[in-house]
Design a binder for these strands. Structure first.
Length: 352
DNA sequence: AAGTCGGGGGG
DNA sequence: CCCCCAGACTT
C-alpha cells in the first residue's frame, strides 16, 4: 500500500471541484464564503441516504417550499410529511425526520454543531453526522459514504472484500481529510465518485487525482472487491380493492416495518408461498381476483401482489379511510400501492 | 455481523 | 436482469 501525499491530493481534488462542482439545490458554490443552511444540509442528507441525486431534487424542492425551516417541519402533522415523502422510499427516514425536527425545534431550533451531538439525533448515523458537521459547520470530520469507499478502495487498490474492508477504507479516508474546506472536500469526493470514479466504466483519463491512484488505468472497476450476493426470494400477497358507492377503502399501515405508517390498500401478509385466496376482508362479499397482478421489487425480496375486488354498495360502510377513485393518485401512496391503484383502475375500466 | 428497509436508472 | 445509490437501525 503506497502512501498518498495528502496535501497534494487535497489541492488537486479541490482545484477540480472549484471548476466542476455540480450545481445542486442544497449546495453553496465552492469557496463562496457563505455558510450553508444547516436545515437544508440536514434535509438533503437524510433524503440522499441510499438514494440518487436526481430522485431527491424534486422532493427537496417540495419540502423546502412547504416547510422552509426546521420549526415549520416540526409543527407539520406526521401524515402530511409521510404523504410528501411517498415514493421516495425507506420510510423510516421520514419518521425519523419528523422526530429529529421536533427534537431540534424543542432545543431552540439549532442543530448541534459537532459530530457527536448530531449523532445523537434520530436518523443521523456516522455518515450523516460527519457530512453535516463538515458541510454546514466546517468541522474536519471524516465523511465516508458509498462513493468515498469506492474512491478509497481504488486509490489504494484494496483487495480486502466488502464489508470487511470498511474499517480500512475509513482509515484511508481519515488520513486524507483536510482541516481546511472540509465540506467542499467531502462534496468533491462525492462528485468525483458520481461522475468520474463511477462504479462501472470509470473515467480515469478525466480524473483529477489519477496520479495518486493505484488502480487508475489498471482495471479500477474491480474495486471495491465484493462478496457474492444472496439471491432475492419471491413473496406473494393480496391487495383488497373494496368499493362502496364509488369510493375505495384505504388504510394506514402499522408504524413500524415495511412501508410503516404509510397509506395503503388493505393487504394480506407477504408470504413465501402464493396465498390461497382466503378473503378475510369483508366476509360475505363477492370477491374476485382481477386479471393483472402487480410486480414490485424490494431490496431483499420481490413481490407479486394479486388484486381482489369486491363491491358492497347498498350494505353498511365499514370504518376506514375511504377515497374516491380520482383521489387515489394524490392519496400519498407509496409506489407499490400506486401500481395497485393504476392496475385496479385499468382492470375495472375494462369491465365497464 | 447480519438482516431489514424502497425505488429508480443504467449497463 | 443485476447493480448501485450522500445509510440507519435493530437484533
Amino acid at each position: 500500500m503506497s502512501a498518498i501525499d495528502a496535501a497534494r491530493f487535497q489541492a488537486d481534488l479541490l482545484a477540480w471541484y472549484d471548476r466542476s462542482a455540480r450545481d445542486l439545490p442544497w449546495r453553496i458554490p465552492p469557496d463562496s464564503g457563505r455558510r450553508a443552511d444547516p436545515y437544508r444540509v440536514w434535509l438533503s442528507e437524510i433524503m440522499l441516504q441510499q438514494t440518487t441525486v436526481a430522485a431527491v431534487i424534486p422532493y427537496f424542492e417540495g419540502f423546502t417550499q412547504r416547510w422552509p425551516t426546521v420549526e415549520a417541519l416540526a409543527q407539520a402533522p406526521e401524515e402530511d410529511v409521510l404523504s410528501a415523502w411517498a415514493g421516495l422510499g425507506y420510510y423510516a427516514r421520514a419518521r425519523n425526520l419528523i422526530a429529529c425536527a421536533r427534537a431540534v425545534a424543542a432545543a431552540g431550533g439549532r442543530f448541534p454543531q459537532d459530530e457527536a451531538g448530531l449523532r445523537t439525533l434520530p436518523g443521523i448515523g456516522a455518515y450523516t453526522a460527519a457530512a453535516i458537521a463538515a458541510i454546514a459547520f466546517g468541522e474536519g470530520a471524516t465523511v465516508v459514504d458509498g462513493n468515498i469507499e469506492r474512491v478509497m478502495a481504488r486509490l489504494h487498490a484494496v483487495e480486502t472484500p466488502m464489508p470487511q474492508a470498511k474499517a480500512q477504507l475509513r482509515a484511508h479516508a481519515a488520513a486524507l481529510t483536510p482541516v481546511r474546506r472540509p465540506g467542499d472536500y467531502a462534496q468533491a469526493l462525492m462528485d468525483l465518485g458520481a461522475g468520474i470514479c463511477r462504479p462501472r466504466a470509470p473515467a480515469c483519463l478525466a480524473c483529477p487525482v489519477r496520479t495518486h491512484c493505484d488502480a487508475a488505468g489498471n482495471a479500477p472497476e474491480r474495486f471495491p472487491v465484493k462478496a457474492a450476493r444472496a439471491p432475492r426470494p419471491a413473496r406473494h400477497g393480496i391487495a383488497y380493492w373494496l368499493t362502496h358507492e364509488g369510493d375505495v377503502l384505504l388504510t394506514r399501515r402499522p408504524g413500524k416495518g415495511l412501508l410503516g405508517g404509510m397509506t395503503s390498500f388493505p393487504t394480506s401478509d407477504f408470504l413465501d408461498e402464493r396465498p390461497s385466496p382466503v378473503l378475510a376482508q369483508a366476509p360475505g362479499a363477492n370477491w374476485r381476483i382481477l386479471p393483472v397482478p402487480v410486480e414490485h421489487g424490494f431490496t431483499h425480496f420481490s413481490l407479486t401482489l394479486a388484486i381482489a375486488h369486491a363491491d358492497i354498495s347498498g350494505r353498511p360502510r365499514p370504518a376506514g379511510l375511504w377515497r374516491s377513485q380520482g383521489e387515489l393518485e394524490s392519496a400519498g401512496l407509496p409506489t407499490l400501492f400506486k401500481k395497485v391503484a393504476r392496475a385496479g383502475l385499468a382492470a375495472l375500466k375494462e369491465d365497464a
